[in-house]
Design a protein around this nucleic acid. Structure first.
Length: 565
RNA sequence: AGGGGCGUCGUCAAGCGGUAAGACACAGGUUUUUGGUGCCUGCAUGCGUAGGUUCGAAUCCUACCGCCCCUGCCA
């Protein structure tokens, strides 16, 4: 099989054959610790660490913490936890841009000495005015021609805390007439008397992204600096700093398109808004595309990595169908999840010809995809719960489940036939009375008689009550962030994104599962114990994803589908 | 006086002058003690449009068209 390289792998392979970077590949994942990681970051993590792995290189974890007013240790910790959980190990290579503040300051001094940077006293508003527009060139700042000595003096005093926030900045002296606005004398240092989560009060000036990022790359010996498309316009600036200064290496920036996923939002700002406005329960709400949310939802690292592998890496803006993510988790969990029986909306079944008080232990397969996962025993008795959806008094032709007169199989147990029903005053069926065929123990009949369907069930007497949270897509709009109809994304939350079922009944074996391992509730979907909200006497399970369901599809009850264009 | 990118199936995405991979989705069939899984089949005479070069063009050239990003002391 021919291995397909994406365009970044190809570039690196070319660099290697050309003998560039001494044959080394060194990447980095550079999050700003101002929010939680989401699946878009997972794409970047898989890419950067994957590149290092593929080309026998190294990938650093570097926190881009140059703006202390937005950054917190809480985020640093969660980011580390998430990267580790995803399955990547940065070893000793954990760095912070703030580790380089002194060296970056020295670089700034060098720039000033070379006449390539100056202290500017324009106000923020004036700087914007002088910058010009997309159509018009900018004008030179009146402070542009200050002497090196004066710049040195002023910048030193900026550092020592002599000036107020916003009163002065250090700017690179490049070209106020450039078509690329990033080159119109960009600000490289600003004054901010703000405590930094790592350096404390040591600094009151902080470098800007464009200055800090590329030079941090250079300091770390990064060979390939992978970032997203919106930074393409910054590349000339990235290169400019590295050209002006003596750096250990000359990294190259390569941009790729960030991930967009249908039926969700990905920007930190929007995720933050959902959390702040309590539209979700927190950063780890299982409906969010955050890694902590996906983890709580029951997504596995392997499924997410596999998803990132399948979506590819390219430069065109795209919208990946969330169905692909769902496919990835089903594929993984089908192999590894142990099967259990759980009844979410219980309907009582009484087997009239089954002995009162008798309990049998029936053998069940834990995972038909993996014999090594063994078998277990499931208690069976005269009174059972089955799913309300599995019974219909007046059933259409294609309904294969329980209906008066029809015989069905109870999984691993017996064939039963519905004889009659009992209803309350409203006419709602409260109990279904059946008879069973003792000869069908285990679920097959000696005479080879076929049944149309197999139902899951739980014996009333041994059932464990539980809460189950049925999660679905957070938004009903496939592209909520686009706000095409003028409606804000926050108004497009899918009313069925969370459905809490309080009165679920589980088979007893489910009492001993942990949140480490997702399970399948047969015929329903994949679920995981919610560690945060479960109590000993009342476990809580979260639905990761439903099983594919052709019956539901055909019978109409469908959730929102992508609109046809 | 504008600059930088990108257009290949419903959605992603290969393709690098030799006659349109693959995945998801979708539609059929088959197996099945999960209406699950597995297996089989179908799904771009077409590559934003129009010209041109060539024996041959999604790939090269030209011109159009469309979409995205850029005027933070954010990253």
């Amino acid at each position: 099989m021919i291995e397909r390289l994406n365009f970044i792998q190809q570039r690196i392979a070319d660099d290697l054959t050309a003998g560039r970077n001494c044959g080394l590949v060194h990447t980095r994942f550079p999050p700003e610790p101002n929010g939680y990681l989401h699946i878009g970051h997972a794409k970047s993590i898989c890419l950067n660490f994957g590149l290092a792995r593929k080309f026998s290189g190294v990938c650093n974890l570097r926190f881009d913490d140059t703006n202390p007013s937005k950054e917190e240790v809480e985020y640093v910790d969660s980011i580390k936890e998430d990267v580790k959980w995803l399955g990547f190990d940065w070893g000793e290579n954990e760095f912070f841009a703030s580790d380089y503040f002194s060296r970056l300051y020295d670089y700034a001094i060098q720039l000033i000495e070379a006449g390539k940077a100056y202290v500017c006293d324009l106000t923020p508003v004036e700087i914007r005015e002088y910058r010009g527009s997309l159509q018009e060139p900018g004008r030179n700042s009146p402070y542009r021609e200050r002497s090196v000595a004066e710049n040195l003096d002023l910048f030193t005093r900026m550092r020592s805390g002599e000036f107020a926030d916003g009163s002065r900045v250090l700017r690179a002296k490049i070209d106020m007439a450039s078509g690329n606005i990033n080159l119109r004398d960009p600000v490289i240092y600003r004054i901010a008397h703000v405590k930094h989560h790592r350096t404390g009060d040591k600094w009151c000036i902080y470098p800007m992204y464009d200055f800090a990022h590329g030079l941090s790359d250079a300091i770390e010996g990064i060979t390939h600096s992978i970032c997203t498309l919106e930074f393409q316009d910054h590349r000339p600036l990235y290169d400019w700093f590295i050209e002006q200064l003596e750096t250990p290496v000359k990294p190259q920036q390569i941009e790729f398109a960030r991930l967009n996923l249908s039926f969700t939002v990905m920007s930190k700002r929007k995720l933050m808004q959902l959390v702040d406005e309590n539209l979700v329960s927190g950063w780890n709400d299982p409906r969010l595309p955050t890694l902590s949310g996906l983890r709580r939802r029951g997504y596995t690292p392997a499924a997410i990595r596999n998803f990132c592998e399948r979506i590819g890496v390219a430069k065109r803006n795209s919208m990946v169908d969330v169905a692909l993510l769902e496919h990835a988790i089903r594929e993984d969990l089908n192999q590894r999840a142990a099967r259990y029986m759980a009844v979410l909306r219980p309907l009582k079944v009484v087997i009239e010809n089954y002995p009162e008080g008798r309990i049998e232990e029936l053998e069940a397969v834990n995972n038909p995809e993996d014999e090594s996962m063994g078998r277990r025993r499931v208690p069976f008795a005269r009174e059972l719960y089955v799913e309300q959806d599995d019974f219909m008094e007046d059933a259409p032709k294609k309904f294969f489940r329980l209906t008066p007169g029809r015989e069905v199989r109870l999984r691993y147990a017996y064939y039963i036939r519905c004889q009659r029903v009992e209803k309350d005053e409203q006419g709602v069926v409260t109990t279904v009375y059946c008879t069973y065929d003792p000869a069908t123990r285990g679920g097959s009949s000696p005479d080879g008689r076929k049944v149309k369907s197999t139902l899951h069930w739980v014996a009333v007497k041994t059932a464990i009550p539980a809460e189950v949270r049925l999660y679905d897509r957070l938004f009903s709009d496939p592209e909520p962030a686009a706000e095409k109809d003028g409606e804000p994304f926050s108004k497009k939350i899918n009313p069925d994104s969370l459905n809490v079922l309080e009165n679920c009944q589980l088979e007893p074996a489910l009492a001993s599962v942990s949140a480490k391992q997702a399970v399948q509730f047969e015929r329903l979907g994949y679920f995981i114990l919610d560690e945060q909200d479960s109590r000993r006497d009342k476990p809580v399970f979260n639905r990761t994803v439903t099983l594919r369901d052709n019956w539901a599809k055909k019978s109409g009850a469908r959730r929102a589908q992508p609109e046809k264009k």
